[in-house]
Design a protein around this nucleic acid. Structure first.
Lengths: 253, 253
DNA sequence: CTGTTATGCGTAGACCATACGCAGAACTAG
DNA sequence: CTAGTTCTGCGTATGGTCTACGCATAACAG
């Protein structure tokens, strides 16, 4: 009944196809005055400068000296633009692991690479992700992560799960630290002060009888000391990698 | 220079204070026709029914038979309302761990409790979280999680890190599965079909030479088999808990 | 030269959050 | 009982958002 719109598989958003270089320009009609990459770059520039909230179609168009509606000839919707922004925002993958590195060193490097990107471009965390990755660079990251696990005894599905585990952790950690950073920028306080102010607030709110464990954490001064966020990061990452290591050893017998 | 607006600590949004029961009604003026909890409940009802995107001030007001601007007498901004929605959306914490359970069983139960909430209310994942938790129920969840680690050799800061690690994982896992579910609802396909359609799309896009590891994953049929999402969940959770266990053993000497 | 097709983009519609100000209700002081 | 004060409900208005639609025009094919 339904006519096939494509020769194989489900339809892909036009801008995604062009990101994979699967789209030749039709011979007729006037030359396009812009290009998808130019639009995406402009949008990324706006996000880098003023955050994701500043990225509106009109603002991006202004950045390019074009009219708002002109963008819609290249991008199907704002969501599509956001997807492409994520792709170029992450940038090229960190590359395959060094040959002398074992899987653990490789994945550590991989995780740090994403960590660094997210610290630089915290707006990536605010993009509502609407599905699994299908853009070129995103899949490049996946590929490089999978290669780190190449020599291991894990099954393919397990490798995938491990990567998901790590990406999720990196994103989560970056979200938390970026929130503290944004909070300090909003209140004009030092990043350390934000945490201790939070600790004071919680201490004032909670009843030590109903929240004994939380009270103990607070009196231990956990939130007062402003420890290096990177230490926090490596702590969690090492816990995860320890868990993966346990699995690999078990699989090896 | 700056006059103290409060007797202790930083200022708190009014609606948060009322959530902690720290606000008595002023004796003058007409009776309030609504209440903060009623507004938040209405907003949660809207989100449950039509998703977070449907939650607008006018929609919530309509739900209550009130005018849009009336809400602003109770809630300082939409962001404040969202914060309160998260609090009641999570609901009461799962309670302290069973006495006979060890830390691992306790945390597993704790993680599953959050898992269940997020599966029921996937809109919670779409709320842009704007800071560390300060609402009553949120801190209740923290408390219960901390209690699971009460008997262990971990330091207070380490306990906190472990909890952050687990919550982050649960949220991340829930985000992924809810995206698949939303994708299937949008396309009208079975959840299993969504994954295999994704696999087909990726297979069509990538070059096996440039993406060998990814190609191997695809040909292994990882994305075709629609495995139980719960299996995926316990896999990652067990990895993390294995990592924590390794740390606890190391601390114990 | 004519027909076809794609582009640039102006207009307009349907939402959204929210600043501001006014009418009136409920209380207190006299 | 009255006047003053304070708080509520909410109408109006502003400025922002995305994007559907349609028209003029540019570039090519025949």
């Amino acid at each position: 009944m339904a006519a096939k719109t494509d020769d194989s598989g489900p339809v892909l958003p036009p801008a995604i196809e062009s990101a994979w270089g699967l789209r030749e320009r039709p011979p007729k009609g006037p030359r396009p005055g812009m290009s998808v990459p130019a639009i995406v770059d402009a949008a990324v520039r706006v996000a880098d400068a003023d955050g994701l909230a500043a990225v509106s179609m009109s603002r991006v168009a202004k950045e390019l000296g074009a009219a708002t509606m002109a963008l819609y000839r290249y991008v199907g919707s704002k969501d599509e633009l956001l997807m492409l922004m994520v792709d170029t925002g992450y940038g090229p993958s960190p590359g395959p692991p060094n040959p002398q590195d074992d899987w653990r060193a490789g994945l550590t490097r991989w995780a740090w690479a994403e960590h660094d990107v997210l610290r630089q471009r915290s707006w990536l965390l605010h993009v509502p992700i609407s599905g699994p990755p299908i853009t070129p660079q995103q899949l490049g990251w996946m590929e490089d992560g999978l290669r780190c696990l190449d020599g291991t005894t894990l099954g393919e599905a397990e490798k995938m799960s491990v990567l998901l585990l790590i990406t999720g952790y990196v994103r989560n950690e970056a979200t938390l630290t970026s929130q503290v950073a944004e909070g300090s920028r909003a209140s004009g306080a030092e990043p350390g002060e934000v945490m201790s102010a939070y600790g004071q607030t919680v201490a004032r709110l909670i009843d030590p009888v109903r929240f004994p464990a939380l009270h103990r954490v607070l009196t231990a001064g956990v939130l007062n000391q402003d420890d290096d966020p990177d230490d926090e990061f490596v702590f969690g990452l090492d816990r995860i990698l320890d868990g993966v290591e346990a699995l690999i050893r078990r699989r090896a017998g």
